[in-house]
Computed example of a mutant assay.
Amino acid sequence: MQQIVRLPGQLGAIIRSERLRRGMTQAELAGLTGTQQKTISAIEGGSAGTKLETLLGVIARLDLDIQIVPRQRGGAIEDVF
Score class of each variant (00 low, 15 high):
residue 1 M to C: 07
residue 1 M to G: 14
residue 1 M to Q: 15
residue 2 Q to G: 11
residue 2 Q to S: 11
residue 3 Q to D: 00
residue 3 Q to E: 14
residue 6 R to E: 08
residue 6 R to L: 12
residue 6 R to T: 15
residue 7 L to F: 12
residue 7 L to K: 13
residue 7 L to D: 03
residue 7 L to V: 06
residue 8 P to C: 09
residue 9 G to W: 08
residue 9 G to T: 13
residue 9 G to R: 09
residue 9 G to Y: 08
residue 9 G to Q: 06
residue 10 Q to I: 09
residue 10 Q to D: 06
residue 10 Q to P: 12
residue 11 L to P: 09
residue 12 G to C: 13
residue 12 G to I: 06
residue 12 G to S: 13
residue 12 G to V: 10
residue 12 G to M: 08
residue 12 G to D: 02
residue 13 A to D: 10
residue 14 I to M: 11
residue 14 I to F: 03
residue 14 I to W: 07
residue 15 I to A: 01
residue 15 I to N: 04
residue 16 R to E: 06
residue 16 R to Q: 08
residue 17 S to L: 12
residue 17 S to T: 15
residue 19 R to K: 05
residue 20 L to F: 08
residue 20 L to T: 12
residue 21 R to P: 04
residue 22 R to N: 10
residue 24 M to G: 05
residue 24 M to W: 14
residue 24 M to R: 15
residue 24 M to P: 12
residue 25 T to V: 15
residue 25 T to I: 10
residue 26 Q to C: 07
residue 27 A to R: 15
residue 28 E to L: 12
residue 28 E to Y: 04
residue 28 E to F: 09
residue 29 L to P: 14
residue 29 L to T: 10
residue 29 L to Q: 12
residue 29 L to W: 15
residue 31 G to W: 09
residue 31 G to L: 04
residue 31 G to P: 09
residue 32 L to V: 02
residue 32 L to W: 10
residue 32 L to I: 05
residue 33 T to V: 13
residue 33 T to Q: 03
residue 33 T to G: 10
residue 34 G to P: 11
residue 34 G to D: 14
residue 35 T to E: 13
residue 35 T to N: 12
residue 35 T to V: 13
residue 36 Q to L: 07
residue 37 Q to C: 13
residue 37 Q to H: 11
residue 38 K to V: 12
residue 38 K to M: 15
residue 40 I to Y: 13
residue 40 I to H: 11
residue 40 I to N: 11
residue 41 S to P: 02
residue 41 S to F: 10
residue 42 A to E: 08
residue 43 I to S: 01
residue 44 E to N: 12
residue 45 G to R: 14
residue 47 S to R: 15
residue 47 S to M: 07
residue 48 A to C: 04
residue 49 G to W: 07
residue 50 T to K: 10
residue 51 K to A: 13
residue 52 L to P: 02
residue 53 E to T: 15
residue 53 E to S: 15
residue 53 E to N: 13
residue 54 T to K: 11
residue 55 L to A: 05
residue 55 L to E: 04
residue 55 L to C: 05
residue 55 L to R: 01
residue 56 L to M: 11
residue 56 L to N: 01
residue 57 G to L: 08
residue 57 G to V: 07
residue 58 V to T: 11
residue 59 I to F: 05
residue 60 A to W: 09
residue 60 A to R: 06
residue 61 R to C: 08
residue 61 R to H: 06
residue 61 R to D: 00
residue 62 L to P: 07
residue 63 D to S: 10
residue 63 D to M: 06
residue 63 D to L: 00
residue 64 L to N: 07
residue 64 L to G: 01
residue 65 D to Q: 13
residue 65 D to K: 15
residue 66 I to Q: 03
residue 69 V to D: 01
residue 69 V to K: 12
residue 70 P to S: 01
residue 71 R to I: 01
residue 71 R to G: 01
residue 72 Q to H: 01
residue 73 R to L: 00
residue 73 R to H: 00
residue 73 R to D: 00
residue 74 G to P: 08
residue 74 G to F: 05
residue 74 G to Q: 04
residue 75 G to K: 07
residue 76 A to G: 02
residue 77 I to W: 03
residue 77 I to R: 06
residue 78 E to S: 07
residue 78 E to F: 03
residue 79 D to V: 00
residue 80 V to H: 04
residue 81 F to S: 00
residue 81 F to Y: 00
residue 81 F to V: 03
